[in-house]
Computed example of a mutant assay.
Amino acid sequence: MRVSVIQMNQGSDKAANLDQARRLVEAAIAADRPGLVSLPETWTNLGGGRDSRRAAAEILPAPGGEGGPAYEMLRGLARAHGITVHGGSIIEDGGEKLFNTTLVFGPDGAEIARYRKIHLFDITAPDGTGYRESALYGGGSDLALFEAGGIRFGCTICYDMRFPELYVALRRMGAEAILVPSNFTLQTGKDHWEALLRARAIDSQCWIIAAASYGTYEERGATRSVYGHSLVADPWGHVVAKCSDGTGWATARIDPKVTARVRAGMPLLEHREAARAWVAKAAP
């Protein structure tokens, strides 16, 4: 199964972001014929402050119901091209709180997965810039998986990648590939992005599919930068496809034989179970 990661340079204009996403997805489909495409984190809005985020947010329908512009665009792309569309994440209007939410649509346009980001980005970057995602967003509590092309995919979003236990939990639930749509800061990205994604591939022995935003955006009068370098890594931790600077996409083939070979040669999940039993026995 071929998968394409879409790399965008979105801003605070939702209509322009939808147009950019559609053009890039359709170009990737025409060029590489993937069975699944994945968009970056909050591709409908990046920057502009609280009011801009609230304006971009959509109330999500019950499965089968009619949604907002981004929801319907994702569903329409999946149905029109007969592929699975992993919608990175969009901003969900949850009432008092917003949510950073993944939506996935199958080839018939039906919604097949929904995931709210669990780990919120509340950090201070090396240059002193503070990020407080929890000031506006609520955190999710449930894991999500879906099947496409005979492969079981797990859902995560950006900062989730720093928590290996989440990826091991998805592996225990049957994941063979894990998606990581992201807006990774330039400062952290240049040192941590590829290292963390390769580590999560090695930890979980899953394919890692990470679509990311690239470039600059404006946030309350300040210019911020995101790293890009969208990539696909195999279960051994090799990067097998990667975007350069700018907008575009990268495509790789997910091969279940590679997954099986890696897991058979190094049975980490079984060894983890033995380690858990030892820790439980040794704990006071």
Results as ranks from 00 to 15, higher is better:
280 A>P: 00
195 A>H: 03
26 E>K: 09
36 L>H: 01
12 S>A: 15
111 E>S: 10
26 E>L: 06
127 D>T: 06
191 D>Q: 04
139 G>S: 11
74 L>V: 09
232 V>F: 01
124 T>E: 05
109 G>E: 09
281 K>Q: 10
132 R>T: 09
200 R>V: 06
58 E>Q: 10
143 L>R: 10
2 R>V: 00
253 R>K: 06
283 A>V: 11
158 C>A: 07
103 L>T: 14
71 Y>M: 08
166 L>C: 03
169 A>C: 05
113 A>R: 01
65 G>Q: 13
279 V>M: 11
239 V>R: 04
192 H>D: 08
111 E>P: 10
63 P>W: 15
224 R>E: 12
168 V>K: 03
203 D>E: 11
279 V>A: 12
190 K>D: 04
72 E>R: 05
89 S>Q: 13
10 Q>G: 15
84 T>Y: 14
19 D>S: 15
44 T>S: 13
138 G>K: 02
64 G>P: 06
71 Y>C: 10
128 G>R: 13
16 A>Q: 05
78 A>C: 08
241 A>E: 04
162 R>Y: 14
106 G>W: 01
44 T>G: 09
76 G>R: 14
129 T>E: 14
76 G>S: 15
22 R>C: 04
2 R>I: 01
244 S>I: 04
209 I>E: 00
49 G>W: 14
56 A>S: 14
54 R>A: 12
169 A>N: 09
136 L>I: 09
188 T>D: 07
227 Y>H: 11
131 Y>Q: 13
174 G>T: 10
42 T>K: 02
263 R>T: 14
111 E>H: 11
25 V>Q: 07
222 A>V: 14
16 A>C: 07
162 R>V: 02
139 G>K: 07
32 D>V: 04
62 A>F: 06
276 R>F: 07
91 I>L: 03
124 T>F: 00
54 R>S: 14
243 C>A: 06
188 T>Y: 11
108 D>A: 11
267 P>A: 03
193 W>E: 05
93 D>W: 13
163 F>G: 02
69 P>L: 07
238 H>N: 06
115 Y>A: 00
134 S>T: 08
163 F>S: 09
206 C>R: 00
252 A>D: 04
47 G>Q: 14
15 A>C: 05
282 A>L: 13
7 Q>R: 03
148 A>C: 12
249 W>Y: 09
257 K>L: 08
279 V>R: 03
61 P>S: 09
91 I>A: 01
223 T>F: 07
233 A>S: 12
121 F>G: 02
183 N>F: 13
262 V>Q: 10
115 Y>V: 00
74 L>H: 11
62 A>S: 15
142 D>N: 05
279 V>G: 02
262 V>G: 05
115 Y>K: 00
280 A>V: 01
69 P>T: 02
256 P>I: 15
62 A>E: 15
8 M>K: 07
